[in-house]
Design a protein around this nucleic acid. Sequence first.
DNA 1: GAAATAGTGTCTTTGAGACAATATCCT
DNA 2: AGGATATTGTCTCAAAGACACTATTTC
Lengths: 240, 240
Amino acid sequence: MCDNRCMASRSTRYRDTSGKALTDYPRPSVAVDTAVLSVSPDDQLCVLLVRRAGTHKRGAWQLPGTFLHPGETLGRAALRALSDKAGVTGLAPVQLAVFDDPDRDDRGWVLSAAHLDVVPWDRVAGLGALADGVQVTPVSQSRGLAFDHDRIVDLAVIRLRTEYQQSPDPRGLLGDPFTLLQLQRLHEAVAGEPRRKDSCRRLRAPTLEPTGGVLEGVVGKPARLFQHREPQRQLGGGHG
Amino acid sequence: MCDNRCMASRSTRYRDTSGKALTDYPRPSVAVDTAVLSVSPDDQLCVLLVRRAGTHKRGAWQLPGTFLHPGETLGRAALRALSDKAGVTGLAPVQLAVFDDPDRDDRGWVLSAAHLDVVPWDRVAGLGALADGVQVTPVSQSRGLAFDHDRIVDLAVIRLRTEYQQSPDPRGLLGDPFTLLQLQRLHEAVAGEPRRKDSCRRLRAPTLEPTGGVLEGVVGKPARLFQHREPQRQLGGGHG
DNA sequence: GAAATAGTGTCTTTGAGACAATATCCT
DNA sequence: AGGATATTGTCTCAAAGACACTATTTC
């Protein structure tokens, strides 16, 4: 597979077909901006925002992002940004799209590789103790972000919805023993519209693993408990 | 929307939160590699390949690509690469994914923004006169490409199939007056498996515009002619 | 009339949506 | 018992698949 890669040392200045050396080309900065989505305990689809540096006006909020470092993958850069800018430990960022308008950033030529990460609520706002300059807002109230970050949020929500149409809880937002009603509430939060009790139930239940236990201590017939069939995903599925 | 963008001139060296100037960061080269897919007259799904510069061994073929130039969109760079490297006029490249393995290119740190373009056959191999070092091969025989281009072809085919599951001919591979049998053949080529005559017909016909004309001069009952409802897409839908 | 291709009638299956009835628990 | 919630029975409807039949042309 790499038979002709090993024939030259790393420092050689290769030339492309036009005869120009690789390092002669002007290169863009590559930013990684991530929409971290989660569902709050009151079933609201929320996004993680950070205050834009050096401003307190409108457009003062944006998605956590950073510039890609040498030797780093986009996914790692996304996780680093979440940790550094928001104090949040991400899970498995996936690429959404590259925003490539040459004028999209007034600091210069910056491409933005937009990402989506989905994390359980207690991981993003667990103790109610968010760092300063960090907030988690319902996506419906997140309009007016800096740069083109509104559009990134749009893409992220669309992507999340299509993922959750395919399987019950692909991103493990729920956490292991859960009832079918909790699953229904989650889907309503993600889709942004109500779901029929029985439709949702019949569609998803066959693909879930019943624990055998039931939810106790509440009024009404106790709900059966279920768990995920397959382990939730961690980082590692990026496009190398 | 951009109220606070106009407050500073373009040459100012902005600093991010860590205090580092934008131009101080090492930046990757950004390549744009495009899988151009088409369907041959004998109903084979094909991909456009170019010979890798300076080699005649295995792995000698690759997708046409180039480095992104300043002020240029990814889509424009993809079209430029098709024109310069293969002498082909592309149509509407769409992003597939960014390949970001730091070691994926032995020339250095190169990200690849993989694209898909779909063009009618006569546009890619019209006169049978392909430029030297250019070929159009069935995708099934395209294995062993340079870099990670095999995976780009895989992504492109998957994407094309999902697009063609949604509507009859979203990329205008057919060209305006066509019969339902031609449409069926096209879908079989894209999907790589046979389709029922009546299913295919009943599913797609209602969304097509009959021209009123029929195909003449062939034995059997003459087939009705159809045309596309909406104009085919050109470049312009990129993520700004 | 025979061959060849286009187009349709209809049966079956599947899956989702909707409504309502039944089951089981807590207080 | 009574309220509250979970679970299931069943009807309907729409879409797709499969098969076979009918229709219209050329030779």
